Measured scan of single mutants.
Amino acid sequence: VGEWSCVRCTFLNPAGQRQCSICEAPR
């Protein structure tokens, strides 16, 4: 899977990211 949706702000982050780029919530 290439990306994941943040549970807090729904931003689509790259699969390699451990936390959201926008709101910094953990994956």
Score class of each variant (00 low, 15 high):
Ile22Arg: 14
Glu3Asn: 10
Pro14Glu: 07
Ser21Lys: 02
Val1Tyr: 15
Glu3Gln: 07
Pro26Cys: 06
Cys23Gln: 02
Glu24Cys: 13
Gln17Arg: 03
Cys23His: 05
Ala15His: 00
Ser21Leu: 08
Thr10Trp: 10
Ala25Lys: 09
Cys20Ser: 00
Glu24Ile: 10
Pro26Leu: 06
Gly16Ser: 09
Glu3Cys: 07
Glu24Gln: 11
Arg27Met: 11
Ala15Val: 04
Val1Ile: 15
Cys20Lys: 03
Ala25Glu: 10
Ser5Ile: 03
Arg8Ser: 01
Cys20Trp: 00
Cys20Met: 02
Gly2Trp: 01
Ser5His: 08
Arg27Ala: 07
Pro26Ala: 10
Gly2Gln: 10
Arg18Ala: 11
Cys6Lys: 03
Arg18Phe: 07
Pro26Asn: 07
Arg18Tyr: 02
Ser21Asn: 08
Glu24Val: 09
Phe11Glu: 03
Gly2Lys: 13
Glu24Tyr: 12
Ile22Met: 08
Pro26Met: 06
Cys9Gln: 01
Gly2Cys: 13
Ala25Arg: 10
Trp4Gln: 05
Gln17Val: 13
Glu24Met: 13
Ala15Ile: 03
Cys6Phe: 00
Cys23Val: 01
Ala15Phe: 15
Ser5Gly: 06
Gln17Leu: 08
Ser5Val: 09
Pro26Ser: 07
Pro14Gln: 10
Val1Met: 14
Cys23Leu: 01
Phe11Leu: 09
Pro14Met: 14
Trp4Cys: 08
Cys23Ile: 00
Pro14Ala: 05
Trp4Gly: 14
Pro26Thr: 10
Gln17Lys: 06
Ala15Trp: 02
Pro26Val: 08
Ser5Asn: 11
Asn13Lys: 03
Pro14Gly: 08
Gln17Thr: 09
Cys6Gly: 00
Pro26Tyr: 06
Leu12Arg: 04
Val1Lys: 14
Pro14Ser: 12
Gln17Ile: 10
Cys23Lys: 00
Arg18Lys: 13
Cys23Asp: 00
Arg27Asn: 07
Glu3Ala: 01
Pro14Phe: 03
Ile22Glu: 14
Ala15Ser: 11
Gln19Ala: 01
Ala15Arg: 09
Glu24Ala: 12
Trp4Thr: 15
Ser21Arg: 06
Ile22Ser: 15
